[in-house]
Design a protein around this nucleic acid. Structure first.
Lengths: 224, 224
DNA sequence: TGCCATACTTACGTCTCCGTAGGTTACGGG
DNA sequence: CCCGTAACCTACGGAGACGTAAGTATGGCA
């Protein structure tokens, strides 16, 4: 135990540590650092598997500092999760704004994969279960949040096409589930490139196994 | 704490408790009872959230009995998880034996939903993460096991149709993910009947959003 | 230069829970 | 009817972790 980083436990993105034997950060800096470290540890060990002392140690600081900033382990965890959910929701919601349903699907799938790639630890945390884990704060509830948005879009489309709108939730859930679990798989596999994965997901969701296209293409995407 | 069931904590399916003040079961009986109780508790509180004492108490027995039978908490947990994985794998594998791909998909989807309905607690346990949770024993790994089977089927089909077989894993994962997460959602919603859910899932997977059928029908299924 | 707020420390109390040592009751066969 | 064995109990040691009380250093500002 006690791996590295005892004095000057820098993990923050941009730190000029004021080279001295013991780092004395401003409140905001330390807070941010603790959040970063917490996210990392929660991601790899889960909530219960991570101790406050461990977090403090990795920050090169003693326990009470953590309590000072977040009031306790749950406090820190709550902030970490909240930030992560916001991030993910923002990205996906942003991708679900305008366009033909197929484009929406494509953009949303890409957004999710993008989030997974960029904020891997965050995704891992969201996938694990939360402390009390009744129904709120769970991954399932987040998925449902997203699914609700997809639901609205599908609902409109269903009405326009004469389908039963009551079925929209089911199909929304299926679509989100498809993308989410594929993302989880891709997290370890990393085999096809992100954009390609998105293209194939859209291919499947849009044409089905029956009318699958051989070389699906993404219509348009912004970065990477 | 200490809810109900202190003496004669029966939870077993078929028990004639030999009415007496203190129940004295045979080894096998007690073992089975502990497994049942363990499954229930692990399902609702998770591994770390469940204490050996709690399990013992609910069985109307003291801690050392649990250690006698399983050597510890992890021992019990391992057996519970193993049984559940076997059950699920058997059901899904059984559904993936013969027939046209579409039928296979249909049967597998139905099998998973069936498992979820019948062994709800087990499914909850499998979905939660395991103790050390490196990569083995996780839900993700189980999903991958199932996905591998789907993969083989898809692989053949892909070759026959001239698609790149390297993509089979991706599509397999997507299909399994679709069904699995929809199942997880259905666990709380329970709105459409199981068979109907399966039908819609197949509808989506087979025809895609583009060619969705209004009233999909299951071709054939055995029970309920 | 001296003071004071802020960042941080050491040390401790307490609680929960795992796992075990050693003793006790009851069932069933000779 | 008696005794051994299988089922079960009380009691304890000890580790780990949360959270707090009270004290210390440090850096900016008057």
């Amino acid at each position: 135990m006690m791996d590295g980083v005892a004095i000057d436990g820098s993990s923050t993105s941009s730190d000029k540590p004021r080279r001295g034997r013991r780092v004395r950060m401003t409140g905001a800096e330390r807070r941010q650092q603790l959040l970063d470290i917490g996210r990392t540890l929660f991601a790899e060990r889960g909530f219960e598997g991570t101790s406050v002392e461990e977090i403090a140690a990795k920050a090169g600081v003693s326990k009470p500092v953590v309590y000072e900033h977040f009031g306790g382990k749950e406090g820190l965890y709550a902030v970490v999760v909240d930030r992560e959910m916001r991030q993910l929701l923002d990205m996906v919601t942003g991708a679900l704004t305008a366009g033909h349903p197929r484009e929406l699907l494509e953009q949303a799938a890409f957004a999710l994969l993008d989030y997974i790639e960029t904020y891997t630890d965050g995704f891992r945390i969201l996938v694990r279960d939360s402390p009390v884990a009744q129904s709120t704060g769970t991954f399932a509830s987040l998925i449902s949040d997203i699914a609700t948005q997809v639901e609205d879009i599908l609902g409109l489309e269903f009405k326009a096409r004469g389908f039963d709108p009551k079925l929209a939730p089911l199909y929304a859930q299926a679509l989100v589930g498809m993308v989410a679990l594929t993302g989880q798989w891709w997290l370890d596999a990393r085999k096809p490139k992100k954009a390609e994965v998105a293209a194939h997901l859209v291919n499947l969701a849009w044409h089905g196994l029956d009318g699958l296209e051989q070389k699906p293409r993404l219509i348009g995407h912004r970065k990477s």
